[in-house]
């Protein structure tokens, strides 16, 4: 289950941010490494919410800085 969450999150990140799959791993920062601005991050969060049927409150969004943070957030809430 957790591996498939990881794959799905990376797939959404690649799609939303027009990134190359080989450039996206858990260590990557959305703003520093993947050139996402604040609007792109909102768009990404909404896509994750739809995919995993979770709600990510705005104050939680601020804590999700890397791809790994996003994967962990989803994993913790879909166990």
């Amino acid at each position: 289950m957790s591996d498939s969450i990881k794959e799905k999150v990376i797939e959404i990140v690649v799609d939303q941010l027009d990134a190359k799959p080989e450039d996206v791993d858990e260590s990557k920062s959305f703003t520093e490494d993947l050139q996402a601005d604040s609007l792109a991050i909102v768009e990404l969060v909404l896509a994750l919410e739809e995919k995993f049927e979770v709600k990510i409150p705005d104050d939680e969004v601020d804590k999700i800085k890397t791809v790994g943070d996003a994967i962990k957030y989803i994993q913790d809430r879909t166990k």
Binding site: L39, A40, V42, E43, L46, E49, E50
Partner: peptide, 11 residues
């Protein structure tokens, strides 16, 4: 409204 409007809508 949460998922139906892109954050990029206005710009």
């Amino acid at each position: 409204p949460r998922h139906g409007i892109s954050p990029f809508f206005t710009p």
